[in-house]
Computed example of a mutant assay.
Amino acid sequence: MFRPIFHLAFPVQDLEEAKKFYVTTFGARVGRVRDKWIDIFLFEGQITLHERPSEVLPAIEHGVRHFGAILAWRDWEVLALRLDEMRVQFKVKPNVSGVGTNAEQAKMLLSDPSGNVIEVKAYRNPSVALEMQDLEDYSNSIDLL
């Protein structure tokens, strides 16, 4: 059965540099490659990187704009350790807040070479933290039509 794939597209300064970042940093897979855009498969989603330097916003103009993923706790720990060992420049270093509560979460933020902000999180108790008691059912059965 085909499962929906979340898709996001955004501009980057340099296509090759962006591709290298996502593949090296996150282990993303490369899909379609064209002259001015490529598809990257990251965290079960498809992002399309468009080489459009004039559309890349300066960091100060990003506001709250970002994208990311919520990982299983252990996967987040493994990724955080690997990124730290790679000496990745974090906007917010890997950290855990709400320790011992139902809202306990792990989080880190970093930017790609064009300044696009990526947030990677994990929750000890995702259903409670996200206030979606049926989260397991939601993630296991995506029947839209």
Rank of each mutant, 00 (worst) to 15 (best):
E61D: 14
V12P: 10
R87W: 00
L83E: 08
R124T: 10
R82Y: 00
F41W: 12
D137K: 13
D143R: 07
Q133R: 05
E136C: 01
R34Y: 11
I38H: 09
H50R: 04
P53K: 09
R52C: 09
A9L: 07
A103I: 00
S139G: 07
D134S: 10
V64L: 12
I60S: 15
L81I: 11
D39R: 01
P94A: 02
S127L: 01
D84S: 15
M86P: 02
P94N: 03
D112A: 02
E51T: 06
N125Y: 13
G98K: 06
E104N: 03
K93S: 11
V12H: 03
K107S: 15
E85C: 02
S111C: 14
L110T: 01
L79T: 00
G115V: 05
P113I: 06
P126V: 07
V78Y: 01
D143K: 12
Y22R: 02
L42V: 14
Y123N: 07
I60L: 11
E131M: 03
V99M: 00
A80M: 11
Y123P: 05
D112M: 01
F43Q: 07
G31V: 06
A18K: 05
M132Q: 15
F21W: 10
Q89A: 14
L81C: 03
L15A: 05
N116K: 03
K121L: 14
M1Q: 08
S97K: 13
Q13L: 14
F67K: 00
R87D: 07
V96R: 13
L71V: 13
L109I: 12
V88W: 01
R3K: 15
P53N: 11
K91I: 13
F90P: 07
F10Q: 03
A122G: 08
F6K: 13
G31C: 08
F26V: 01
V128F: 11
V64N: 12
M86W: 05
G63P: 13
E61S: 12
R124F: 04
H62K: 09
K107R: 15
I60F: 06
F2W: 05
L135V: 03
F43G: 06
L15R: 11
P126L: 07
T24G: 02
I70H: 03
D14G: 11
E55T: 08
D137G: 13
V99F: 00
V88P: 00
L110I: 05
M108A: 10
G68Y: 06
V12Y: 04
K121F: 08
E85V: 11
D134P: 01
K91N: 06
R65G: 09
L57S: 06
L109S: 08
N140M: 10
F21D: 04
S97V: 14
N102R: 06
Y123A: 06
